[in-house]
Amino acid sequence: MGRSGNLPYLIRNKWLYIFLIPGILYLLVFKYLPMAGLVIAFKDLSLTKGIVDSEWVGWYHFETLFQSSNFYRILKNSLLLSFYQIVWGFPAPIILALTLNEIRHMFFKRITQTILYLPHFISWVVLAGIVMSFLSPSTGIVNHVLNTMGFESVPFLLKPEYFRTIIVSAEIWKEVGWGTIIYFAAMSGIDPTLYESATIDGAGRMRKMWHITLPGISATIVILLLLKLGNILENGFEQIYLLYNPMTYATGDVFETYTYRIGLQQGRISYGTAVGMFKALVGFTLIIMANSVSRKLSGKSIW
């Protein structure tokens, strides 16, 4: 522990603060300066007049959002979808990483790792097309199997109750492999002598995984989970847009799709900025709260 005085501390650790300067400078210039543009959310932006001369409208856009008859639905859908994405999508790469970690055949491991990353690079346009083909009510393979088993065809993509499952499953398919990378990096940081001592103590593979590997990557897990909460009102526009339709609006319409349809394309920039601000505010609040809770419960937190 250092002295309580600030100045001596700063001088003694001057290098640490010097190291921070480039990063902070970067953030100030490239992130905070443009943030001044958030004022657009409080104006009626006219491209010709420019930001400064556009008319001030205060909370108008936010009120428009909250008073929209769809607001509670899109809020609910966004939160629920994120919840599902976290409950199912978050553990998937962890489990896969742990599983792969146990594979000892090096060549097999290398090959499979490369294969698992492939869907991450394939655009949603292609993957959504494949999903739609598989789930087609008339020619899809899933319904084909159902029919041979004696069941009627189900138009999955037209049924709101299946929508979340489809979205979350497709996303796992695309991202589970890529998501393991960060956990591998974390696993590399675990002291191997821990494993050796455990072997000597007679611990089996499952016990080693549970008592060494998992705790070893727990900091990473917690941090990633906390950061995910910051994006709780983001659900992945492209995927949802490609797979949803009026029949599934009830569960599938989220913030991003709603604002897109309400005419972002036609240049309702101010409104879009206001909605973005709202989403960011909710996410930020959530991170702060979750961070405190996490620090108390697990000792691990972002700050």
Binding site: L10, M35, I40, I51, F284
Partner: peptide
């Protein structure tokens, strides 16, 4: 590196400063 040191004074503020930039964005015009 500096932020990984728990004893760093001002760490909390800097982290909040950083997380804030991850969420708020002025948009393409600014």
């Amino acid at each position: 590196y500096p932020l990984s040191k728990r004893h760093l004074k001002g760490r909390k503020i800097i982290m909040v400063f950083i997380v804030f930039t991850m969420l708020f964005n002025g948009g393409i015009i600014p």
